[in-house]
Design a binder for these strands. Structure first.
Lengths: 376, 376
DNA sequence: CGCCGCAGGTTATACGTATCACGTCCGGGT
DNA sequence: ACCCGGACGTGATACGTATAACCTGCGGCG
């Protein structure tokens, strides 16, 4: 603190009560950038203050001063930087370095808790390595199809994209940026790496759980989204049931959302043929809607109909009964994506892990009613 | 996985042979940009392709060529840019222009649906104006207290901050960036503008609804977060009830989350004195937990105890009974914040609107049980 | 003695863009 | 005839940073 017009005098704080009954608050002219901070300090300012050259500042602050700057001057530089509140201009640095240490995360929509958690995990790991993450919610969330690179005001070093945001992928591919796919076909050659959740294992665990309870008529309420991860749910379920004779599997298209789940479940329960005893839903939200449908038909969960979810969102324990579901490690998913991207950026060989999932057994599943005749 | 080194067949190598062997592969001088796709096209490349100067390209693409470039050449420039897939280097532009068209949105945590929707609204409006939005989830979401500007890899033009992220505000204030506060005390002089939701009106509507149904003993399950918006809920509730004689108001501290709501409601319902007939919760998630507590005590919602939420999240219609709640226009909230920030950035006088909220009456409220003795 | 190497610096430069200052060529007003 | 101003362009420059290239003593070693 030297000169620089400092010491803003006490701000004229009205101490308590006595609200200014008029409160004119005129002064509409224009507050010129009078208050300090008008222009940020540059490395040249720091150099001047420390009595060295701008290059020396860059060296010291970049921690590359081993045998180039004396310890005395290095400390002087650091002190000056601190005093001036110096922050490097990231735009200039990016221009010079040719990279931005920023990744783009492409997700279908952010209002889904799942992807919010994926982002959180990715951002946390990124921050630990000096990276930033910006979001590109795909068209359904943000408006008409828009170029991802117009959305990201920073230039990008790489992209992490959910397979559910397939509509944005063509633009991404064209840009030739390093790409990490989330939950995508491992054979997809667009990606430099692929991070997956072990969805198939989750479905198998869930199915085994229902089978063990005695269920034989299972209806799958699908998300109605054309993406690899949802296709995998359906195919794994079909394959698993095929190994147990006497089972019956149906698929009912729903959509994402409570209402969609409700309507699909209603249709599934009132349709022709024997009523299913278990509803396997593509996510927890659909499952919540399905539970509502069951009760509106005068039936109970789980005594009459078992319902299962997927994801283990906060919602899963907010409804009653609490949902039996498959817990997806969302934060770790985002972390793994970011880690893979950083590996690609470092030129190393990226890992393409498959993250384990976990069956969480709660109150929405039970043995089917005793009076139910076994299928066929 | 054997040799990573393999498979660069015919990488470059113009196979035309007869390369002058006097020019061995050495040439360490300077790598000319040989491999097209490796480096992005610059405005200079476009200029060369269109047969004009780089300045002309900038003029045309910046739509500032009124009387400076002929229509013919302008079209040629646009064609060349299209052919080359030219994208301006945003880092260079930011450096030159001194701004980034990027705003930072500071929220307490993203995993809450509410702020995810706020972000979506802000980002949508921003995109329409060529702005981007990056997020700074506050420490609780992202890790230990970290400088917002390390998190944002782009430099920033301004900040939109929720009052719930108060812990990050000191760093923000120090930076002297244009600041728009979300849901904050209008007298707060830190902000260039303040956008509010009409929380007080929502509380009054909710309270009137309960009073009209006949409730006299109301317990407020608070979020336990020290922020202006939650304080306003409590004070407005108290003030409203004070105007109706014979009412009894208690406050029970909860926290954000289903479990917290459950425990707080349990305590509220089993505590000393006559049982409250209505539980007014600071948000829908707490309310969902409260409903669970009611049922675990062998009581029914809403016949024995009415429960109300706040926010109108997706959760509100996922639980049964569906929650009576106050709908907060989250997307519009984010939009209004972004609009105010852009107004500040344009040097204009920003509006500081208060957005209306709406009472949504659903199944979780009903008249109190008839056998309930009036309070006092 | 000559000269190398190294610590401790500085100067110059390039990244890609937007814009200012400067040219040139005209047609038209005085 | 002269100058003015507008249309049409181009060259130069600066934004702030990181780093390559260069410079200067100085102790040591053949």
């Amino acid at each position: 603190m030297t000169s620089n017009q400092a010491t803003p005098p006490a701000r004229s704080e009205p101490p308590a009560g006595t609200t200014p009954h008029t409160a004119p608050a005129r002064t509409p002219h224009r507050e010129p950038p009078r208050t300090t901070a008008a222009t940020r300090a540059t490395s040249r300012d720091v150099a001047r203050a420390a009595g060295v050259s701008q290059a020396a500042v860059s060296l010291v602050l970049g921690d590359k001063w081993r045998g180039r700057v004396s310890a005395t001057k290095a400390e002087a530089v650091r002190a000056a930087a601190r005093d001036l509140g110096y922050r490097p201009n990231l735009a200039a640095r990016s221009l010079r370095m040719g990279h931005t240490r920023t990744a783009l995360l492409v997700v279908p929509a952010l209002t889904t808790e799942f992807f919010a958690r994926v982002y959180t995990g990715a951002a946390r790991l990124a921050a630990d390595h000096g990276f930033g993450v910006v979001l590109y919610p795909s068209p359904e969330g943000i408006g008409p199809a828009r170029d991802p690179f117009d959305s990201a005001s920073a230039t990008l070093d790489g992209v992490i994209a959910s397979s559910m945001a397939a509509d944005a992928l063509s633009a991404l591919r064209h840009a030739g940026l390093p790409l990490v796919m989330l939950d995508s076909d491992p054979d997809d050659d667009r990606a430099g790496a692929t991070v997956n959740l072990d969805i198939a294992d989750g479905v198998r665990q869930l199915t085994t759980h229902l089978l063990t309870l005695g269920h034989r008529r299972i209806t799958h309420l699908t998300a109605g989204v054309d993406s690899w991860t949802f296709a995998l749910r359906a195919s794994t379920l079909a394959e698993t049931l095929r190994q147990t004779p006497g089972t019956q599997l149906r698929h009912h298209p729903a959509a994402l959302g409570v209402d969609a789940g409700l309507h699909a479940a209603h249709a599934a329960l009132t349709g022709p043929g024997p009523r299913p005893t278990a509803l396997l839903c593509d996510d927890d939200i659909i499952a919540a809607g399905a539970c509502k449908a069951v009760r509106r038909l005068g039936l109970r969960v789980p005594e009459d109909v078992s319902v299962t979810g997927f994801d283990d969102l906060a919602l899963a324990v907010a409804v009653e009964p609490e949902l039996t579901t498959v817990r997806l490690p969302a934060e770790e998913f985002g972390e793994a994506g970011m880690r893979a991207l950083m590996a690609v950026l470092d030129g190393g060989r990226p890992e393409s892990p498959t993250l384990p999932v976990e069956l969480v057994t709660r109150g929405s599943t039970a043995p089917p009613p005793a009076d139910t005749a076994p299928a066929s």
